[in-house]
Write a protein that binds this DNA or RNA. Structure first.
Length: 427
DNA sequence: TCTGGGGTCCTAGGACCC
DNA sequence: TCTGGGGTCCTAGGACCC
């Protein structure tokens, strides 16, 4: 590489606007311009808001406390339909991936991009073209920020979102002057990686804007807030610390649920735990991992100070790395018996597996039983569940009669993913 | 009477993200 | 009556060892 030809790397962030709400709007153009919200599982709290809804309802608001507001302002309310959102996300990411080879899918609605060797390409126009293509093809509106680091790309996207008229949804932070101006505008709480706790402490010290924040010394930040916050400062100053991350197997996998009502009965809980465990084991097999530990937890409703509170949790070691629903269910139920206490109204429970290793590795261990039959059975279960819908095939500990229903009073049809009907499998 | 110091490993919990 | 779910990384402090 010649000296006078410096290759300047830039990062981009493509972020779908109010993603879940935008997905719901695709099939109902009448919702455009209206306040719309999407609720979490059990219709518990607000997890996505249209721009019109944002001044009315805070993020995470418990739905039952806002029924009055919903009515008064004619807010359109939807139960979450994650199958639909996942499908639209995949389509969106496929298009984004055609614009640069270096891309990191950061979440269901966000992707980081890396522009290496794009010196002769006008990035604003290029990304503006991508934004238009995605809107034309899928109907999802995007905001795009570009800058010398991931943290600055995030900040640029925030600016693009805040000033849609002037930026047309795409903003490039490429000169020291623009970066300086952006940092003087950006509130510390809006810096990526500075959350509620740390921004409250910074505000107490009268550190209000990102431009104030980057003046603090490394040693002070290190001592007071830890190494991660120092890294964020460097990123804001234009030194890339965080690179794109390649997809890797999860280190932990969890399945947890808050119940629509509550559970007092051990057998009911045993059934729920067995189901969570087989869902978790299927997730393990999907990423071809096996786990060394399994954690079971149950807890009462922590929002109800008037009720007796109890939270129990236990972590058990597997005999050898496993992805077997049967092995893991046995362990999970052993754990559940140990932490179960009679007389409480349980509101939430879950399963978490950890210390994952690649599933193939365990066969290198001569002392491990081959459990070939387990393996074949698990394979069959996974294939049938994949084909006919989630969780149709159940294990012994799961009550075959019982279908656990989330509260989803306001579900929209799953237009792109609908399965015709439930298929019963008799064995 | 005297009451070290440094290293490693592990875990729980904090803080953050979408 | 009704308050989500699934992740990551880091740190402090205890246990243990020499």
């Amino acid at each position: 590489m010649s000296k006078n030809h410096v290759h300047k790397t830039l990062y981009g962030l493509a972020d779908a606007n109010n993603f879940y709400v935008s997905c719901e709007r695709l099939f109902r153009p009448g919702l455009n311009g209206k306040p719309v919200v999407v609720l979490s599982n059990n219709d518990g709290c607000v997890i996505s808001r249209s721009n019109e809804a944002k001044p009315l309802i805070p993020m995470g608001a418990p739905a039952f406390q806002y029924e009055e507001i919903f009515r008064k302002h004619g807010v359109e309310v939807f139960s979450a339909n994650f199958a639909l959102y996942g499908d639209l996300s995949t389509r969106m990411m496929n298009i984004i991936g055609r614009y640069t080879p270096d891309m990191e899918i950061y979440s269901i609605d966000e992707a980081f991009l890396k522009f290496d060797g794009f010196e002769n390409i006008p990035l604003e126009e290029y990304m503006s073209g991508m934004k238009k293509e995605i809107f034309r093809a899928i109907g999802i509106p995007l905001t795009i920020g570009i800058g010398p680091t991931k943290t600055l790309a995030k900040a640029a996207a925030r600016i693009a979102k805040k000033f849609p008229g002037r930026t047309r949804g795409v903003y490039l932070l490429d000169t020291p002057e623009k970066i300086d101006k952006a940092l003087r505008w950006l509130p510390v709480g809006d810096i990526h990686g500075i959350g509620r706790r740390i921004s409250a402490k910074l505000l107490q010290m009268n550190v209000q804007k990102a431009s104030d924040f980057i003046k603090l010394s490394d040693s002070f930040l290190r001592k007071r807030f830890g190494i991660q916050v120092v890294r964020i400062k460097h990123e804001l100053k234009g030194n890339a610390v965080f690179d794109l991350e390649m997809p890797q197997p999860r280190q932990r996998i969890a399945t947890t649920r808050t119940f629509a009502g509550h559970i007092r009965d051990f057998d009911e809980m045993r059934e729920r735990i067995a189901t969570f465990t087989s869902v978790t084991a299927a997730k393990l097999r999907k990423q071809k991992s096996a786990c060394n530990f399994i954690t079971v937890f149950i807890r009462t409703n922590r929002h109800r100070q008037d009720l007796k509170q109890y939270a129990g949790s236990i972590t058990l070691k597997t005999d050898y790395p496993t992805d077997s629903s049967i092995e893991l269910s046995k362990l999970a139920l052993t754990g559940l018996r140990k932490i179960w206490r009679n007389g409480y109204d349980y509101k939430k429970a879950g399963i978490l597996v950890s210390e994952l290793v690649p599933a193939g590795e365990r066969q290198l261990n001569l002392f491990v039983p081959t459990d070939e039959r387990h393996h074949r059975l698990m394979n069959v279960i996974d294939r049938l569940n994949l084909r006919y819908g989630h969780n149709l095939l159940k294990l012994g500990g799961q009550d075959p009669q019982r279908t656990w229903k989330m509260k989803q009073a306001r579900l929209s049809p799953a237009y792109t993913t609908r399965l015709t009907d439930i298929i019963k499998v008799y064995t």
